[in-house]
């Protein structure tokens, strides 16, 4: 990776992850200022009615969290977390939609579903990041983001608690960046700067 690479015109930074990815977020989030894009997080989570994930992330970041309900507006400078048991979809008029259809890759929310939808709605204004996990979810989604002109970033598998998900992505896509955690933080900080 070049030291002075710059990602510009990003409207949505979307981060997907499964087992082992929450640790990565917890390391990164405290170092981020309020961004000029929306930060969307899609993690595989248990089918429960509680808000522990939201609370944990809110506690680690100065970026305000917007509760995701159906048809909320997506705005720069906020974090959005895909709720458990719904797929997250993006409308072309800057609204989020939720969907209770079949699980994809045994998951709802599925990273592929969210990534494919954000790619369709926002095209090259998307930066997609795939973190640690033990499942193949996310690879097809990264391909969709890339095909739509967006930038794709994968956590370096050796630095992931669960390397399967990022390895699967590295093997089947052409990531713009494959990074460890400090480099990921650095990249995100320089988006749109």
């Amino acid at each position: 990776m070049e030291k002075d690479t710059l990602i510009s015109n990003c409207k949505i930074l979307i981060i997907g992850g499964s087992a082992g990815s929450l640790d990565v977020l917890i390391k990164i989030l405290p170092h981020l200022d309020i961004p000029s894009f929306a930060l969307v997080i899609v993690l595989h989570r248990k089918h429960t009615e509680d808000n522990t994930l939201e609370e944990l992330i809110a506690a680690k970041s100065i970026i305000p969290l917007k509760e995701v309900e159906d048809k909320v507006e997506i705005l720069p400078g906020y974090i959005y977390i895909a709720p458990s048991d719904y797929h997250l979809l993006f409308e072309k008029n800057n609204l989020l939609s939720l969907d209770t259809s079949e699980k994809v890759n045994y998951s709802r929310p599925s990273i592929d579903v969210a990534f494919e939808s954000v790619a369709d709605a926002y095209g090259k204004a998307v930066v997609g990041v795939l973190l640690s996990g033990a499942n193949a979810d996310g690879t097809d989604g990264l391909i969709a983001i890339k095909n739509a002109g967006g930038i794709i970033i994968v956590q370096q598998p050796e630095t992931a608690d669960m390397p399967f998900m990022p390895s699967h992505a590295v093997q089947n896509t052409s990531p713009d960046f494959i990074v460890d955690i400090p480099a990921l933080l650095d990249l995100i900080k320089r988006i749109n700067s």
Binding site: L89, F90, E91, K92, S97, D99, S101, V113, E116, S117, D120, A121
Partner: peptide
């Protein structure tokens, strides 16, 4: 209908 969801279906 929601375009994002309808299109996907």
């Amino acid at each position: 209908y929601s375009k994002a969801s309808f299109k996907r279906r």
